[in-house]
Simulated assay, not measured.
Amino acid sequence: MTADGVPRPTLLVVHGAWHGPWCWSSLTKVLDARGWRTRTVDLPSAGHEAGLQDDTRAVLDELRRIDGPAVVVAHSYGGIPVTQAVAQAGNVAHVVYLAAYQLDAGESLLGYHGAPVPSDPHGFQAVPDNPVALFYGDVPGPEADAAAARLVPQSTRSFSDSLTQAGWRTVPSTYVICEHDQALPPKHQEELAARSGAVHRIASGHSPFLSMPAQLGALITQIADAPGDGADGFRQPAAQRNE
């Protein structure tokens, strides 16, 4: 419950490419200790030949299991299916893009980076070389190595599929820039963050849920506790702004 007796929303945390729900374990412990209900989702494109629509359905299925409002926290690639899903869900109060792809309708991950769409979108993108440096540069060594060992190939189709809807145009959103990110450089995050109603920064690499879960948990709860109607630092969703 909030201070005025209103039930808190449930936090749905959505992982990025090559990862799985396991990556949120440290953060969800912090959030649980703060009295928040949390849920995770397993995106089928990590480890299976699935595309954006499959991932979107997985997010929507989890949102339908939530009784009441939800705040969705999307990391990295997870921002793409979340953007599509929240346009269709009726219970999302806010979206938090954590070093995530806040794309618009018609855009894809490969297209955003100016990369060609493969002629054959089937198959997988291998786990990147040196994932510890890329994803976990500020995570303690043993924990970083353990995380890297759990990464799985990512479906190529998930990177080439384009969005058909952009939920952030109607649902309030906040962007969290990871200032020392080696996977999604801060300059790209700054561009994407311009689509959000508010922006925060955290002095972390790409995976603050592993490197600084306490600080990230405090920031997420601060965002989730604030109203999403344009007050207290939040602007209106893009579709409602006079810009």
Rank of each mutant, 00 (worst) to 15 (best):
P227Y: 11
E243K: 04
A93G: 09
A89H: 00
E179P: 06
P172W: 01
S26G: 05
W24Q: 02
A115K: 08
K29A: 15
L98N: 04
P21T: 04
A99E: 13
C23L: 06
P172M: 06
A3N: 07
D181P: 14
G111C: 02
E49D: 15
G228C: 06
L27I: 05
H48F: 10
F135S: 12
T28D: 08
G137P: 07
V127G: 09
T28A: 05
G205N: 14
G5C: 06
I80L: 06
V117D: 03
S211M: 10
L134E: 06
I223N: 10
G78C: 00
D129R: 14
P121A: 06
A85M: 00
V14D: 00
T170P: 01
H188G: 07
D229G: 04
V95K: 01
H75S: 09
S158R: 06
V71E: 02
H113K: 05
Q189T: 11
Q102L: 15
G230S: 07
A115I: 01
D42V: 06
H206E: 11
T28R: 15
G90A: 06
T56Y: 06
V152D: 08
P227D: 08
Q154F: 09
G111V: 00
A144C: 13
D129M: 10
D225Q: 13
L11Y: 00
D181K: 11
F209H: 15
A218L: 11
V152H: 05
N130T: 13
D54P: 08
R64P: 02
D55G: 09
W24D: 08
G16E: 10
G79K: 00
P128W: 12
F209C: 04
E49F: 03
N242S: 14
A198N: 10
S162R: 00
V41E: 08
A224W: 13
S25L: 14
L52F: 11
A99K: 04
A33K: 14
D54R: 08
D161T: 00
P153W: 13
R201A: 14
D42A: 14
V73N: 02
V82Q: 01
R169F: 03
D120N: 10
T174R: 04
W36L: 10
H180V: 13
A33F: 07
F124M: 09
S196M: 11
G197H: 11
F234T: 12
R195M: 01
L103W: 00
D42H: 08
S155C: 10
S204D: 13
A218Y: 03
L134K: 15
A166I: 01
E49H: 09
S76F: 04
A3H: 05
T10K: 01
H180W: 14
P9Q: 09
D120Y: 01
P118Y: 04
